[in-house]
Design a protein around this nucleic acid. Structure first.
Lengths: 169, 169
DNA sequence: TATAAATTTCAATAAATATTGAAAATTAGA
DNA sequence: TCTAATTTTCAATATTTATTGAAATTTATA
């Protein structure tokens, strides 16, 4: 397998992974492209490589910047803006974890807290009891995951995997 | 907030969460409904509660069963099939983790292994070098995550969170 | 500041995904 | 086995999501 083919396979797999995680294929592909590139790229480079429209590239880059995993860089004597991906995989992962926590885990915890201990006489008691039982469990699990995530986000790669994987033994 | 409103909020939030994770809203909502129900439900119950078509319910239930988080149960004297969700949140989480590992992490690891150490003289050397550097990092991280996941999947809730969260101190 | 290059926005459109509903298949009980 | 209840399938349709492309805006520099 040569460079071109290898790169295409990764971009493809990354795009697939993206859609499984609720991220548009194109956005994930642009990310893969930047991640593998030795130098920051311009919008036109990306358009040429992936054969997609300027508007799409502009919007996808904005999203990637909002996720905190791509940044603009400026090169003296170059009018066009350049984009580069975070290259450190640990940084990438913790940044994505941080964002997903904020966007998904925090909101669901808020909902679960709001519905704790509902009382209601208008319906069968067993329904209320069962719902309370489940939401209590879900909230407990969510909060524990939240703690685990904050540990993950703050820690350093070797320390985290080192410590956690030692538990395997 | 009464039972009905609370339940609606959870079903809604679960549906939202689903779409963020590449799962159809309806499928996640059916799961939430079953999770909160004190008794197994029939297809008709679900149709009535969520106001969706029979075909949709049939297909979504099949998917949930494929994920391993919903099962059919049979009740004597009842012709219709009944469905119930896994109720133990830890079981739910580890089952989802197991499936996602199989469906997503395993395939990406295979791709990353396939592209390790590509050599190519037809393009700028720096591109090949950079890609190799990234895919090596990505593979290492993926394998470590795989180990962590297998620890998570095999362990018991209190043990896992107990051990891991002790690292916070 | 004027101009042209570059970027962003967003309505229109395309593509992907989810949903319906009725026909086909399956199943349990008579 | 036959029949009616139940479930599944899948082509048609609807909905959602992604993408385009050209106009509007912004930006760098002459």
């Amino acid at each position: 397998m040569d460079y071109k083919e290898g790169r295409a396979r990764i971009i493809d797999a990354w795009g697939q992974l993206g859609t499984n995680w609720g991220i548009s294929r194109t956005m994930a592909q642009i990310h893969a492209l930047l991640m593998l590139a030795p130098e920051p790229m311009t919008t036109d480079d990306i358009i040429a490589e992936l054969q997609i429209s300027r508007g799409n590239v502009s919007m996808s880059l904005r999203s990637l910047i909002d996720w905190g995993i791509v940044r603009k860089v400026y090169k003296p004597g170059q009018r066009k803006e350049l984009y580069e991906s975070e290259k450190d995989v640990w940084e990438l992962a913790t940044q994505v974890a941080k964002e997903r926590r904020r966007r998904e885990l925090d909101p669901i915890i808020r909902v679960l807290e709001d519905v704790q201990g509902i009382e209601d006489n208008t319906v069968m008691k067993s329904k209320v009891t069962e719902m309370n039982k489940m939401t209590k469990q879900l909230l407990k699990f969510s909060k524990q995951s939240d703690k685990l995530l904050s540990l993950f986000i703050k820690s350093e790669e070797n320390w985290f995997f080192g410590k956690v994987l030692k538990l395997l033994k």
